[in-house]
């Protein structure tokens, strides 16, 4: 394997891994804080990409503004989803909310088949050109995607350090005691939902210039995000980050050797790792529903 190929594989892996990490951290946040397993997260990712495309192509917004628009729209959709549907089923427990989100994902999928997602959309590349370091050539667009993903993860880290972030972590730990301390848990619920869904939307919009927007991007990314969630530990934010990049790199490198069997390679990899660390890579995650 030449050095260029090796670095290109790593960059590809980091790029897709960044996406997995962002979607999975949205998933892990909603699971850890408000105990909701949101299966519609992948569909939010797809919608984010399409909204960014529409904002850039149809409304002529500059790309960074379109990213913010997608973040806002997906956050809003998440909040509406929470208040409209999830809140009514929460009294029936973890399992009913999970099934509701599965059905909601199905509805989004079907609606988008009939309307906007009937054909793939490709945005003109925002960052063309290549980065040449010695004999290694790397596309600039992919580097920007990786950079954006890391910046968003850092921002998320600082968000969790603010007052509302600590309130979120407190209610993740124990909802009853958090209520006693004067935390407005109703507010925590919708803020968490907005942040979780917004993360998916923003992931979809930053990957758009590289891969374009298509219908299957939602389910594809969601399956990997599930694996990231398992590997990183359910409810662990930093675990999702590390596991996301790890799975991205393993997938990309395995593709070079075994072609489209690479998903099996990740499954074996994740299976072996969670055999030795069932609680996730980093150990202690947020408490999750169960025993």
């Amino acid at each position: 394997m030449s050095l260029t190929l090796f670095f290109q594989l790593i960059v590809n892996g980091l790029m897709s891994g960044g996406m997995y990490a962002l979607v999975a951290s949205g998933l892990t946040l909603t699971l850890g804080v408000i105990k909701i397993f949101n299966f519609a997260q992948g569909q939010f990712y797809m919608l984010g990409a399409f909204i960014t495309f529409a904002a850039v192509e149809a409304m002529g917004m500059p790309y960074p503004v379109a990213i913010l628009a997608s973040l806002f729209c997906m956050g809003l959709l998440g909040v509406l989803f929470f208040f409209g549907i999830i809140q009514k089923t929460m009294s029936q427990g973890f399992f009913a909310t999970m099934l509701v989100s599965v059905l909601f994902a199905n509805i989004i999928n079907q609606v988008s088949i009939f309307t906007f997602a009937s054909k793939d959309q490709v945005l003109a590349p925002i960052f063309s050109g290549k980065l040449v370091v010695g004999e290694v050539t790397i596309s600039t667009g992919k580097m920007v995607v990786i950079g954006c993903a890391i910046i968003i993860m850092v921002l998320l880290h600082f968000f969790m350090k603010t007052k509302i972030g600590t309130a979120m972590l407190a209610s993740a730990e124990n909802m009853e005691v958090a209520k006693l301390q004067g935390i407005n848990t109703r507010k925590i619920f919708w803020v968490t939902m907005a942040v979780g869904c917004g993360l998916s939307g923003i992931a979809g919009s930053i990957i758009l210039p590289v891969t374009g927007a298509y219908l299957m991007m939602g389910p594809n990314v969601f399956l990997r995000a599930l694996l990231v969630l398992m590997l990183g530990g359910m409810g662990s934010m930093s675990g999702a980050l590390i596991a996301g990049f790890l799975i991205g790199i393993v997938e990309s490198v395995a593709f070079q050797f075994v072609g489209y069997f690479n998903i099996l390679a990740i499954l074996v990899f994740v299976g072996i790792l969670i055999y030795f660390r069932p609680g996730g890579l980093l150990g202690k995650p947020m408490p999750i529903p169960g025993e």
Binding site: L223, L226, L227, L229, M230, M234, L264, L267, V270, G271, I274, P278, G279, I288, G290, E291
Partner: peptide, 14 residues
């Protein structure tokens, strides 16, 4: 329970 839940998802995808 949670390890079982997770493992079964992996099994299903695999």
């Amino acid at each position: 329970m949670m390890a079982f839940f997770v493992f079964c998802m992996i099994l299903s995808i695999a």
